[in-house]
Computed example of a mutant assay.
Amino acid sequence: MTRDDPLVEQIVRLLDVRLLDPLEVLLEGDDAVDALRRLVRLRARGWASTLRDGDDTAATMASARLIATLYPGDGPFDPPAAWWGSPLGRVVARRVGHPWFESISYATAGAMLGITRQGVHDLVKRGRLPRHPDGGVPSVAVRDRLRSAPSDSSDTSDSPGDSDDQ
């Protein structure tokens, strides 16, 4: 079986670990879980396509469903900085911004942009990113900056847009 792109692989791996492996344990290795694994891989390709190329509403809804399923919790979704560097984190940042916060810290913005917190501070200081009235920067401004930057179709890199941003 050929390997899918990194975004599909991340989605499949997370669903496998968080949902299908526990289900396999509960069902004592039932063959139905193998069928679910095939279905998850098929659907993951569709979700990845929607996240990359779907309209904004479809991409937002797909990211919300995946995040709610993969990262359940009582509080708002606030992943570690490293998550924004993953294939899923990069595509969510570019298509949605931070899905739950209007204002994000310089550190989170830096993680989303692939630069340092100081790099974000410099962008704000130079007027290249706005400062949010409540502190930090607007999530939509980071999203818009990522959208204006060239990106490759495999979601393996995201340039923040200016070579002097880092």
Rank of each mutant, 00 (worst) to 15 (best):
residue 6 P to I: 03
residue 6 P to F: 05
residue 8 V to M: 03
residue 10 Q to Y: 04
residue 11 I to Q: 02
residue 11 I to M: 01
residue 12 V to F: 01
residue 13 R to T: 13
residue 16 D to F: 02
residue 21 D to L: 15
residue 24 E to S: 11
residue 26 L to H: 08
residue 27 L to G: 04
residue 29 G to W: 04
residue 32 A to G: 13
residue 33 V to F: 06
residue 33 V to C: 07
residue 33 V to W: 03
residue 34 D to H: 10
residue 34 D to A: 14
residue 37 R to I: 00
residue 40 V to E: 05
residue 40 V to P: 03
residue 40 V to K: 03
residue 41 R to I: 03
residue 49 S to L: 10
residue 53 D to E: 12
residue 56 D to W: 08
residue 60 T to F: 07
residue 61 M to H: 10
residue 68 A to L: 11
residue 73 G to W: 09
residue 74 D to V: 11
residue 74 D to Q: 14
residue 75 G to I: 00
residue 76 P to G: 09
residue 76 P to K: 12
residue 78 D to P: 00
residue 78 D to V: 11
residue 78 D to L: 15
residue 86 S to K: 00
residue 87 P to V: 04
residue 90 R to K: 15
residue 91 V to P: 01
residue 93 A to P: 02
residue 93 A to R: 00
residue 96 V to R: 05
residue 99 P to I: 13
residue 99 P to T: 13
residue 101 F to T: 09
residue 103 S to N: 12
residue 103 S to H: 14
residue 109 A to P: 05
residue 110 G to Q: 02
residue 110 G to H: 00
residue 114 G to I: 07
residue 116 T to V: 06
residue 116 T to C: 08
residue 118 Q to S: 15
residue 120 V to E: 03
residue 122 D to W: 08
residue 123 L to A: 14
residue 124 V to W: 03
residue 126 R to C: 07
residue 129 L to W: 01
residue 130 P to Q: 08
residue 132 H to E: 08
residue 133 P to K: 12
residue 134 D to P: 04
residue 135 G to V: 11
residue 141 A to G: 07
residue 147 R to P: 00
residue 150 P to F: 12
residue 150 P to N: 09
residue 156 T to Q: 14
residue 157 S to H: 10
residue 158 D to F: 01
residue 164 D to F: 14
residue 165 D to L: 05
residue 166 Q to T: 08
